[in-house]
Every structure is written in structure tokens, then in C-alpha cells.
């Protein structure tokens, strides 16, 4: 039964990918190429590219894509369902525990300790995004001057706008997309 196979495969991906998209990639590859041969390596690379280009978590995107390739829209539903099922139970349970126990002083201490580390994680993600935007890679390249000037401009203007006027971030991102299109076409 193909739907059950999809649910089961993506349940494993959902259960074992801790830490988001980049952790999920090898698991998706394993299930969709090695175990089930639902995809070729080229199709897998395409899915990863499209996942990066479109909104949404990589695991959900690839579940939808693989599901459709294998068994149409019902297949996509089955794969997506399988993918989120572990999260539903585990995270709801953790939410329950968190709201029950966060008043306790020892839990308070632990949470206070974790918060600066979380800020560091988000800062690290910001750093990767900045180098992606400026250089097209996740790390600073050797030639630091080989930079995308338009991206730097869009970035600086956006930060100023966000800091100064508290504009809706979605509007800022969409604006950057359109302004970027115009600028890249004018100054290729």
C-alpha cells in the first residue's frame, strides 16, 4: 500500500531530523533514493534547489514533492501527514511540560541559561544568510571584495527601514524581491 509506505517513510524523516532542514536532507535522500527509489539523484537535487527557492520547511516541501511524484495529491497528503506526525505528539507534550514547570526555580535557571545560546543560534543563522546574500555561499569566501553590491544595498536599506519604522517584515522581503528584480535587470 503506497500511502502507508509514504507515511512510514516520512514519519521516520520527521522523527529523526532534529535541527531543521539541513538535518533532514540526508534522511530524505536515504528514504526516497536508497530505500524506495522514488526519485533519481537529479530529481533529488532539483527538489533541494526548489525547496531553497520556495517558502516552507524543506522536509514538508520534499514530502509534498515526492508524494505527488509517487501517488499524486493523495500521496502528497500522506507524505506530509507522516512528516508532521512525530512533531505533533512530541512538541505538544513538551509544550505541556514547559507551561507546567516553567515557574519552578530550577527550570527558570535552566531556561535563563539557554536563552543567550538561542540568540547565538539565530545570530549564526543571520550570518549564514548574509554571506548567502552577499557571496552566494554559507561562508566568507577568500576574495572578500567579490561581493554582490545590489544585495548589500538592499540589505542595508532593509535593516535601516526595519530598525527605524518597525515596518512589517513580510512587506520588506517582498519589496526587496521586486526592487532586486529591477536593479539586477538594470545593472547586470
Amino acid at each position: 500500500m503506497i500511502y502507508l509506505e509514504l507515511i512510514w517513510a516520512f514519519m521516520q524523516i520527521g522523527l529523526f531530523s532534529i535541527g531543521g532542514g539541513y538535518a533532514a536532507m540526508p534522511l530524505i535522500q536515504h528514504q526516497a533514493i536508497d530505500v524506495h527509489s522514488w526519485l533519481t539523484m537529479t530529481e533529488f537535487a532539483d527538489i533541494m534547489t526548489i525547496s531553497e527557492m520556495t517558502p516552507g520547511p524543506i522536509a514538508i516541501n520534499s514530502a509534498t514533492f515526492v508524494g505527488i511524484q509517487v501517488a499524486g495529491i493523495p500521496g502528497a497528503l500522506a507524505a506530509t501527514f507522516g512528516c508532521i506526525l512525530p512533531s505533533c505528539f512530541i512538541v505538544t507534550f513538551l509544550a505541556f511540560i514547559y507551561y507546567r514547570s516553567r515557574g519552578m526555580s530550577s527550570i527558570q535557571g535552566i531556561l535563563n541559561g539557554i536563552r543567550p545560546a538561542v540568540i547565538a543560534m539565530i545570530a549564526s543563522a543571520a550570518f549564514s544568510l548574509i554571506t548567502m546574500a552577499f557571496y552566494g555561499t554559507r561562508y566568507i569566501p577568500a576574495d572578500i571584495l567579490d561581493i554582490d553590491v545590489i544585495a548589500v544595498l538592499l540589505f542595508l536599506v532593509s535593516v535601516v527601514v526595519l530598525r527605524k519604522w518597525k515596518i512589517n517584515p513580510i512587506a520588506v522581503m517582498a519589496g526587496c524581491g521586486l526592487l532586486g528584480l529591477v536593479l539586477y535587470l538594470l545593472f547586470p
Binding site: I122, A126, L129, D148, A151, V159, V172, M173
Partner: peptide
């Protein structure tokens, strides 16, 4: 599409940077 995406990436980086500045 790829040019729009390239522009949006700079905006996404700015949004995340803004929140990091506030939190830190």
C-alpha cells in the same frame, strides 16, 4: 524568478539581523 529570489534573500537576511540586534 531567480532574480526576485536573489533580492528577497537580502531582505530575509535583514529581517533576521534586525531581530538579532533587538535580542542581543
Amino acid at each position: 524568478i531567480s532574480l526576485i529570489m536573489t533580492g528577497m534573500l537580502a531582505g530575509v537576511a535583514a529581517v533576521v539581523t534586525d531581530v538579532v540586534i533587538s535580542m542581543a
